[in-house]
Design a protein around this nucleic acid. Sequence first.
DNA 1: TTTCCATTACGAACAAAATCGTATTTTGCT
DNA 2: AGCAAAATACGATTTTGTTCGTAATGGAAA
Lengths: 127, 127
Amino acid sequence: MSTANKIKPTGSELEILQILWDRESASVRDVHEELSKTKTSGYTTTLKLMQIMFEKGIVTRDDSSKIHIYQPAVSRKKTQKQFLDKMINGLFGGSSAALVMQALGNQQASQSELDEIQKYLDDLKTK
Amino acid sequence: MSTANKIKPTGSELEILQILWDRESASVRDVHEELSKTKTSGYTTTLKLMQIMFEKGIVTRDDSSKIHIYQPAVSRKKTQKQFLDKMINGLFGGSSAALVMQALGNQQASQSELDEIQKYLDDLKTK
DNA sequence: TTTCCATTACGAACAAAATCGTATTTTGCT
DNA sequence: AGCAAAATACGATTTTGTTCGTAATGGAAA
C-alpha cells in the first residue's frame, strides 16, 4: 500500500471534490458557482473550505496567477472505494452482496443498468 | 411520501443502531457492553447518546422500570437505503450501476456472494 | 425502613466542521 | 502611478457532535 492515505474528506469537501473530478480543475469561483445551484452559502465559505482542503492535501493548486486553479489530489475511484468499504462494514455487516442487492432493489437500477451489471458479473465469473 | 423523515443518524448513533437492530431491544448497559468491545468511552457517554437518540425519535424506549429498554424506531433497511441513495447521488453521479460494479470489483465479493447476486438479478429480470 | 448501588438526568467541556466578516493582495484599466 | 474590482488570507463565530463529571433517583436487599 502506497504512502498511507489517511485522507478522509468531510461532507462539504466531498461536494467540492465532485465538481473538481468532473471538471478536472476549477477556480474557487467556478466551484462556488456550481455549488450555488444546490446550496446557499457565501463565497468565502467555499474559499475557506478549499484552502483547508489544500492544507490537508486533498487538492493541489496552481497559484501562479491571481486566480488559483485547484485540482483533486485524490482519485474518484479511490475515494469511492474508501467510503463504500466503510459503508459495507458499518451498515451492511461486511456483506457487499447485501449492499449490492439493496442497491439493485428499490427501483434504483434501470433495465439497461441491470444489463450492464449482468455483463460485468459474467466477466467476473469467467476469471 | 409519508411523514417527512428527516432523521439522519450520526456515526456514533449508527453504531448504537447496529446493536439495537441485531438484538431487537437492549438496555444502555447492554449497548455499552457491546460497544466496549471496539471502543473506549464511558458509560455515561453511551447513555447520553441514547437519550439524544430518543429525543430525536431515532429510538423508542420503555421506561416503566428502572432500567430503560430501548428499541430502534427506524428500520435497518430504510436506513441502509437512505445512506445508499445519498452515496449513489453524492459519490457515484446517480448511477447505482457504478456503485454496484465498484462494490463487486476490488475482490470484495466472494464467489458465493456473486452467485447470490446472480440469482437476485435473475429474479429482477423476470419481473 | 434504611442503606447501598446501579441507573438515569443534566449541564458543561471539548472537538470537529461549516460559515462568515473584514483585511489584504493582485491585476487590469484609466 | 493610482484606482476599482475581484480574489485571497485569516481570525472569529456558530453549529453540530462527542465525551464526561456529578447530582438525583429508584429499587433490591439487609
